[in-house]
Write a protein that binds this DNA or RNA. Structure first.
Lengths: 228, 228
DNA sequence: GGGTACACGTGACGC
DNA sequence: TGCGTCACGTGTACC
């Protein structure tokens, strides 16, 4: 009797076999072993009523299932402070709330990243106004796109050189994800010219030109919410 | 008696007040109301032993706390199929596993978006995120500063071309406020080289070289607080 | 009525 | 020592 009770103690605390929460009805050797002794040591001495006997075993099953679930819960949650039943549930709640919060954070981050990378597909994406920085516009003086054959397109852009013009032009061009083979920037006193060698077909040339012009226009637009 | 049991039924199923899992010891009016009748209807008829009486109320508290936690768990988990205790725990486990999986998915997605995004990030805009975006360091392969006479110094820098290397190099060079006459950037497959024509005296050459090296080093230093 | 789920009181164990 | 926790059997309500 003592030994059995002791085993029961350990049953919840350590020696729990049934970690698989999918099983509904398992064999549970320790409970089975105890069942007989429990019946025989029934306090009323007389024949145990067969009606309640069913209830007893059913109740045992229920308790065992619940403990099983509780143990499974414990195995999912990291950092369980106390092995107490109530504490296990409490820690699970805290952990779950933590997960939910983190999920929201991650989703927000993904939305932020997506709005940043889907620059040209969705030109008008919402952005935080307070984070907008104003810059000098890029003034294009001349732009020429020519197909060189062999999947090579050359783009020549000349713009007036102001403050940070080269950095800004770099940003815009990098945002387009063009297949750039070679780049060359040259700056003189008042002008900045760049020559891009792109890998593209002849029919893509006009599309490339349009993309660049659109991107520069978007970059210059003070109301444009895209962050470059 | 029947009514009381009925109330208990409803107690677990619907009328649960204590959703706050922080409270350890609450007043629990329904249990209190029942306590008296429970004592009087004790089956053994004789005076209930005062020793076990303490245990009874303690046990009641324990049960109530556990149900309280269980109810709180139920309120956190959406889509509980059955209000059964075991089912609540099972659904909680499933939901938690779902959250964990989704967390991994979202994190993977974020990592992919971050690595795929070739857009330039303004370091100021990312301050609200706990995850700081670190830029790729500028890896200088060769640097040469020569005096050409006539107050002209030529600086040649060659670095390995990584993501955004040119923009970053522009930022660093612009931050130095050099008296630049002409610049030329050329990028090939794996290298990016720039040639700067500066207006400077011969004796300034070494200072210019030191300034550029210092600026690049500062830019690469993740602990450097200078914003370029 | 059999089956299920629950709250209850009780004895035991450990800190 | 008491106090907290547990498994157990039981009575009962709901379907």
């Amino acid at each position: 009797m003592e030994d059995l009770d002791h085993e029961y103690k350990n049953y919840w605390e350590t020696t729990m076999f049934f970690q698989n929460q999918e099983l509904e009805f398992d064999s549970w050797p320790m409970e089975e072993a105890f069942s007989g002794s429990g019946e025989s040591s029934s306090p009323d001495g007389a024949a145990t009523s067969p009606a309640s006997s069913k209830n007893v075993v059913s109740e045992r099953n229920r308790r065992q299932k619940l403990n099983q679930r509780l143990f499974a819960l414990r195995s999912v949650v990291p950092n369980i402070s106390k092995l107490d039943k109530a504490s296990v549930i409490k820690d699970s709640i805290d952990y779950m709330q933590e997960l939910i919060d983190q999920e929201k954070t991650l989703e927000a981050e993904i939305r932020e990243l997506e709005s940043r990378s889907t620059l040209l597909e969705n030109p008008f994406k919402q952005m935080d106004y307070s984070t907008r920085v104003q810059h000098y516009p890029i003034e294009v003086l001349e732009m020429k796109v020519t197909w060189m054959g062999e999947k090579t397109v050359v783009v020549c852009i000349t713009c007036s050189k102001k403050r940070e013009t080269m950095v800004q032009l770099c940003k815009v061009l990098e945002s387009l994800n063009l297949n750039i083979l070679t780049t060359n920037f040259s700056s003189f006193t008042s002008r900045l010219s760049t020559t891009l060698f792109l890998q593209a077909d002849e029919e893509e040339s006009s599309a490339v030109e349009a993309k660049i012009q659109m991107a520069i226009a978007a970059y210059n637009d003070p109301n444009c919410l895209i962050n470059f």
